[in-house]
C-alpha cells in the first residue's frame, strides 16, 4: 500500500508519505508548524478517502474547524462521515458541552480511560466498515501537563499497541520545549517515526527518522 500523503509535496516526495500502520511523533517548538502539519495531514487524508479521528486536547471542536477554514482546507463534507473529532478540551471551559454528529465530547485531560475508550471504540467502528484510519493526537503535551509521566507512558504504550494491532496510523504532536528531556525521550521510545519541524528565517523545515525512508538533513517543507 502506498503511503499516506501529508499535503506537503516536498515531504511526500522525499518520504513517500507516512507509512500505514506506523506511529509518528511530530515535534518542534511552538512556532515550528506542528499544528499546521496536522491540519494539512488530516485534510489530505480525508481527500484521499481515509478516515481521520482527530483528538483535540487544547482547543474546542469549533476552534479546530476554524483552523481548517482559516487555511482554506474544506473538510465540511467529511464531518461525521470520515472525520470524527474527539474533543477532550471543551468541557474545561463549558462543562455542559455535548456531542454533535461529528464530535464526541470527552471529560478532559485526566480521564485517559475515557479517551482510550473513545479512540478504541471509534477506530473499531471505522475498521469494521473497512476504512483505513489515521488517528491524530493534538497534542499530547497538554495531557502530559495533567498526568504524571508514568501514567502517560502506560497510556501511550496502550494506544500505540492497539494502533499496531488494528493497523491504524497514529500521529502524536508534542512540544518538546514544555517537557523534560527524560519525558521527551520516553515518548520518542514509544513511536516508530519522528518528524521534527522547525522555523528558520521565515521558512519551515523538516526531518524524518526511524522509518524506512529517512530524511536526516533539514529540508524545506512545502
Amino acid at each position: 500500500m502506498t503511503g499516506i500523503m501529508t499535503g506537503f509535496p516536498s515531504f511526500d516526495a522525499a518520504t513517500g508519505g507516512l507509512d500505514v500502520r506506523k506511529t509518528y511523533l511530530v515535534t518542534g517548538n511552538k512556532e515550528s508548524g506542528k499544528e499546521d502539519f496536522s491540519y494539512r495531514l488530516a485534510a489530505s487524508s480525508l481527500n484521499g478517502k481515509l478516515s481521520v479521528v482527530y483528538v483535540t486536547n487544547n482547543k474546542s471542536n469549533t476552534d479546530l474547524l476554524s483552523e481548517f477554514t482559516a487555511r482554506s482546507l474544506n473538510i465540511a463534507q467529511y464531518l461525521g462521515v470520515s472525520m470524527t473529532i474527539l474533543d477532550n478540551y471543551v468541557r474545561s471551559i463549558a462543562p455542559q458541552a455535548g456531542d454533535n454528529n461529528y464530535t464526541k465530547v470527552l471529560n478532559g485531560p485526566v480521564d485517559l480511560t475515557g479517551l482510550t475508550v473513545a479512540v478504541s471504540s471509534k477506530n473499531s467502528d471505522l475498521l469494521k466498515d473497512g476504512r483505513t484510519v489515521v488517528n491524530i493526537f493534538d497534542s499530547i503535551s497538554s495531557l502530559l501537563l495533567y498526568n504524571n509521566p508514568v501514567t502517560m507512558f502506560r497510556f501511550l504504550q496502550y494506544i500505540c499497541g492497539r494502533a499496531k494491532m488494528s493497523g491504524v496510523t497514529t500521529v502524536f504532536l508534542l512540544d518538546e520545549q514544555m517537557h523534560t528531556p527524560e519525558v521527551n525521550e520516553t515518548v520518542r521510545s514509544l513511536v516508530d517515526g519522528i518528524i521534527s519541524l522547525k522555523l528558520d528565517n521565515g521558512k519551515r523545515y523538516f526531518t524524518v527518522s526511524g522509518v524506512a525512508k529517512e530524511v536526516l538533513t533539514w529540508t524545506p517543507l512545502g
Binding site: R91, P95, N107, G108, D111, T113
Partner: peptide
C-alpha cells in the same frame, strides 16, 4: 470523584 467535574458527571 477525581475523573471529571461533578457537573460533567451528572450530565453524563
Amino acid at each position: 470523584l477525581n475523573r471529571t467535574s461533578p457537573q460533567v458527571y451528572l450530565t453524563e
